[in-house]
Design a protein around this nucleic acid. Sequence first.
DNA 1: ACCAGCTCCTGCTTGC
DNA 2: TGCAAGCAGGAGCTGG
Length: 283
Amino acid sequence: MPELPEVETVRQGLVPAIVGKIIKQAIIRRPDLRWPFPPDMQKRLEGRRVEQIDRRSKYLLFRLDSQDVWLVHLGMSGRFSFQGGTLGQFAHATGGDPKHDHVTLLMDDGVVLNFNDPRRFGAMDIIEAGQESDHKLLCVLGPEPLGNGFNPELLAQSLAMRGSAIKSALLDQKLVAGLGNIYVCEALHRAYIAPNRRCNEIRGSEVLALYHAIIEVLKEAIAAGGSSLRDYRQADGRLGYFQHGFQVYGRSGQMCLRQDCGGVITKIIQSNRSSFYCATCQT
DNA sequence: ACCAGCTCCTGCTTGC
DNA sequence: TGCAAGCAGGAGCTGG
């Protein structure tokens, strides 16, 4: 479900509720999500203080006592919520779906952190601190789009080597990490680039526009608390509202919102995923 | 090596 | 109303 802005919003919501606290008990109700949990996950969570929560692409990294890192991916439908402690006003946050509450952490101050994931495309692992960059899921990731490693020259270089459609390329986490279907569609619209354009046929000026579009759309979405489609919520239960800012995603048949464009948003299927774009202003 | 398509799982929406 | 098909925001794997 969630893309970079949603994961970042969840991270920001978890920090005040969880960081600095000790995991008193870890309740793990099934052996796996997408993959089996490490057999010692419970042991390596319990008794640990959460020193920091970082994000890499769509992964959350809970740093535990400088020893281990609890790696969590929300997949399509994964969701964190918490209640109790000093943040009792968010008592509605657990969502009332105990059937898919797969992992629950009881913190030493009474806060209950719950991980719910109906589709079970989520993932969890425990990594020894310092070994993150060698982890099989993290080592393949491209640059962080809002970090220093992402720049127009690198993007141009990566695109020049590819013959695939730009839409598919931007979904490839090796090229740039953290984009998903929604924000790729939105970024391409902002950059006036059609999703079926071949990467190596995109001109330098367009690559620059795309670079800025990616950064802008992600920053705006984070500022809006992510996009709430279906059941996505922030960790404290609030809804994000960037979905109201979509220019193309989910708008097939409707008018392009770009001033003086007059086009209609169309939906095509690329690599089995929906792409939304305006064939009038995106070329 | 690259790339499009398939796949995992469940729940919600759509159409007959 | 009931039921089946279709669809979903991720991403590793397979086979062309």
